[in-house]
């Protein structure tokens, strides 16, 4: 069974491996040291650690799209904003 139809590139493969590692890491963290009950953040949302990861990822997707539509590729700047966004979400939301 050949996998050529999936059209892998090293760039996208790296992306998915990183994503899988983040998910596994978060799972391990939660398993070893449970994050406990949800807390109420500045948006009035009750979030657990996993919810914050989801908000980070979804937000990052939109940050990247926004960067591409207003500034254009390469989207390295978006990466910086995403990192700031992640820190913000994990601390405050």
């Amino acid at each position: 069974m050949s996998l050529s139809w999936m059209a892998w590139t090293w760039q996208t493969a790296t992306f998915f491996i990183l994503l899988a590692m983040v998910l596994a890491g978060m799972g391990l963290w939660e398993w070893k040291r449970p994050g406990g009950n949800p807390r109420r953040g500045i948006f009035g949302l009750d979030t657990t650690r996993g919810d914050r990861l989801f908000i980070t990822l979804l937000g990052s997707g939109f940050i990247a799209l926004g960067w591409l539509s207003f500034i254009g590729s390469p989207p390295y700047g978006a990466l910086v904003i995403c990192a700031l966004w992640a820190i913000f979400v994990f601390r405050r939301v």
Binding site: S4, M6, A7, W8, T12, L68, S73, P74
Partner: peptide, 23 residues
Amino acid sequence: VNYSFQETFGDNVFFFEGFKWYE
């Protein structure tokens, strides 16, 4: 996701295009 970064002319031959299609 893989398709979205590449150009194809059929027959499973692909070329990496970066973020071109998104833009």
